[in-house]
Amino acid sequence: MDVIEIKNLTKNYGKSRGIIDVSFNVEEGEIFGFIGPNGAGKSTTIRTLLSLISPSSGSAKIFGKDCREFGPEIKKEIGYLPSEVFYYDKMKVIDLLNYSASFYKKDCSKRIKELAEIMDLDLKKRIDDLSFGNKKKVGIVQGLLHDPKLIILDEPTSGLDPLMQQKFFDLLREENIKGTTILFSSHILSEVQKMCSRVAIIKEGRIIKLEKMSTLKDNNYKKFKIEIDTSIDKNYFKIKGVNNLSVKDNVITFLFKGNINEIMKKISSVDIANLYIEEPDLEEIFMHYYEKEG
């Protein structure tokens, strides 16, 4: 069964672009990645799903029901973590969470305590005394406290330190094992890779790719930057799997896809001063897709 069905969803903001003809489905029980650079339309899509804004055309269904017509009903089972969390500044954390819980007709007090403990959140502090990361934690607890069947996360990790990110991901996996469906929006490829089974890539308002994570992993590019003291042959690194090779003075950069051992052997036989191996940023991945399409 599809938990989310989005069909030809379009949203125009006056003259500026919102999203164009976005369609994808999220199946029950999966963690679905929704990835794209900032301003690509991830938040617009999500806000349309939550009927915070209304689509110009197209439709979206959640749990098989139109998300505008049945908004209040389907929202009972949705937990949402916005990309920027803002709450009533003068409230205490616990009061805010209880207020949030009061919208769902069940007792959430035990779950609030559990989640706060996992996320290491001080419930007695006032919202405006919290740091950005701590506000994000409030957002996480607030989004999960009513045991929703669908969790929608918009850039959930910004502001969280790596340890908290790890705890948060563990929490999500636990929820997922219990059967919860998760829509995970992010501009960081690696965290989507870690979590998701399928992924939709959005750019400039359009979905440009809908793929299984396993397929995307085969396209697992790494970005290499090597600094050397001596000069080497320009074509030394020109082996299978190397793309966008550039040699400038003593700095060599390229993208690599393939068996990582081969390239490491190649590097180890050169006297290097410094080495950086990074995830390529999204632009580069997108470039790759555009090239393939073109």
Partner: peptide
């Protein structure tokens, strides 16, 4: 104004 709409308006109330 306080940017709390993403809190209140995603709750199950019309």
């Amino acid at each position: 104004r306080d940017k709390t709409s993403e809190f209140l308006f995603v709750k199950p109330v019309s």
